[in-house]
Design a protein around this nucleic acid. Structure first.
Length: 261
DNA sequence: ATGGCGTACACCGTACGA
């Protein structure tokens, strides 16, 4: 089973890339973030045409998340239960594969935070607290669970092209890294770090100043898994290919493969 | 140096992302 995540920075603009990528990489599920379109504009027909189901939580202009999957999504949950938030940043669904083993899949678009100390930064930290509280329950209910998405946190200095230049900045501040660690402390594993990885692998590069060509980036898109599922993870990679296409998203997809029990 | 680039909405600029 392969699960993937991709912040597409507008699904209107990137639908062609998503379809091309799925046809070249027929994963079982692809979690999307930053749809930037309302529910009624979600292109479900184009995805059905290539053999995928979808569930989504859209929002005009900002945010918006989806799960595109070969299996029909079950028990779909939008938003963090009990956390009143007009921003559409979470969707969860249970996917049963052909062997019938259900996996709980969550697509997450964690807040950016804009600048350390700002109102948006405070919102980011509160949002992570709510996420952690909800996940503590969700993990109990679903032993095989993966939460994939744009966390807007680079967990360690190894995930930043120039840690000295970024020190204390948004995406790497102590409080943000502690919020991310709070998820790890629930028993979740950053599947990328289960494996030996080359240095300087990132998932986001600024559009400006040829950052992608210079590999000036950060690793902020992650696939976290519960112990049962992480124990069956055999690979986790960043696919840089679509970042080099015409009019790319500034994020690259991340893909993890899991052995079935 | 809050600039650089890209997207959306709307207006001929502003908000936001990371």
């Amino acid at each position: 089973m392969k699960l993937a995540t991709w912040n597409v920075n507008s699904l209107n603009v990137r639908l062609g890339h998503v379809i091309d990528w799925l046809q070249a990489n027929p994963v079982d599920a692809l979690c999307l973030q930053e749809l930037k379109l309302p529910d009624e504009k979600f292109p479900h027909q184009a995805l059905e045409d290539i053999g995928y189901h979808a569930c989504w939580a859209g929002q005009k202009t900002y945010n918006g998340v989806a799960i595109i999957s070969k299996a029909a999504p079950q028990d779909v949950q939008r938003n963090i239960p009990g956390y009143d938030d007009p921003q559409q940043r979470i969707i969860a669904a249970t996917l049963a594969d052909a062997q019938g083993m259900p996996v709980r899949v969550i697509s997450a678009y964690c807040p950016n935070g804009q600048a350390v100390g700002s109102d948006k930064y405070a919102y980011k930290l509160h949002w992570f607290e709510a996420l952690q509280q909800w996940l503590a329950d969700e993990i109990q209910r679903h032993p095989d669970l993966a939460i994939l998405g744009d966390y807007n946190v680079a967990p360690t200095d190894a995930d930043v092209h120039d840690p000295d230049a970024w020190a204390g900045n948004i995406l790497v501040s102590d409080a943000e890294r502690q919020a991310f660690q709070g998820l790890i402390d629930l028993g979740l594993t950053d599947t990328f770090r289960l494996f030996d990885q080359a240095p300087k692998i990132f998932s986001w590069w600024d559009y400006r100043q040829m950052s992608f060509r210079r590999n000036v980036g950060v690793r902020i898109d992650h696939i976290l898994a519960t112990p049962d599922l992480a124990g069956r993870c055999t690979e986790c990679v960043v696919d840089k290919t679509p970042r080099g296409w015409e009019k790319p998203s500034d994020h690259a997809p991340v893909v993890a493969r899991f052995e079935l029990p």
